[in-house]
Design a protein around this nucleic acid. Structure first.
Lengths: 113, 113
DNA sequence: TGTTGACTTGAACAAATGTTCATGTTATAA
DNA sequence: TTATAACATGAACATTTGTTCAAGTCAACA
């Protein structure tokens, strides 16, 4: 019955694996946003955004609330910010690695064989 | 030409969004492993694992090398470990949140309305 | 009570991912 | 030189996700 932890982890990361959802989390980690504010920043149809928000809600990463006619979203867990930063660091490291590698391949005369 | 950063981020997270790939990264963040060692730990067909390893290679998260007839995999970037830890923390927070919530829903007599 | 703005939902279709199977490669041992 | 162990790859099919469209809710407002 209790699903293995690595399944939960995988699902968690999959939830982050969508451009619009990432952008939502980044925006929300700055401050709460109403849906129409998100729509101004993210080029996507309202209905599509709604689906993506639903996905984030399902995995418990964000929460909804209503304030005078608008629906406001917030990150449910403050650590989301840390995660996004950790990811940024790795991503940068990987990109640098690849740049170095292709520089070595592209200009092999630089040093040794 | 330069793909937006949030696309790269999404792809990065998607790469982590698979049970077998997560397990591989966790095992590799302890120490290097040969493919057959990974196979002992992860219940998956060799060919499937190979595909998943290829995916991890493509995004530059792991690297391959050969040592006496075996293929050894290593994490390419040491920070992977940090990321997995950060994810663990969030995941736990989210799970706790949900547990609290369902406890409140399930046993509403505990305190206030 | 009827609109309108702000969102959500469901269902259908499209696109991306995952799994398997058959075949290929590489290095070592017989 | 041919077996064999240890992996990788490609292609076909299955499954999951994503996107769109049409319709629905909800709350203020006219």
């Amino acid at each position: 019955m209790t699903r293995p932890l690595y399944e939960a982890k995988a699902e968690f990361f999959r939830t982050l694996g969508h451009p619009a959802r990432i952008r939502v989390l980044e925006l929300l980690s700055e401050r709460d946003h109403a849906v129409h504010e998100l729509l101004e920043q993210i080029e996507i149809e309202p209905s599509n955004l709604s689906h993506q928000l639903a996905a984030l809600r399902r995995t418990g990463l964000v929460t909804q609330s209503r304030r005078d006619g608008q629906v406001i979203y917030s990150v449910a867990v403050p650590e989301v910010r840390d995660l996004l930063m950790a990811a940024r660091v790795i991503l940068q490291a990987v990109i640098d690695d690849q740049a170095t590698l292709s520089a070595e391949l592209g200009a092999p005369a630089t040093s040794e064989s």
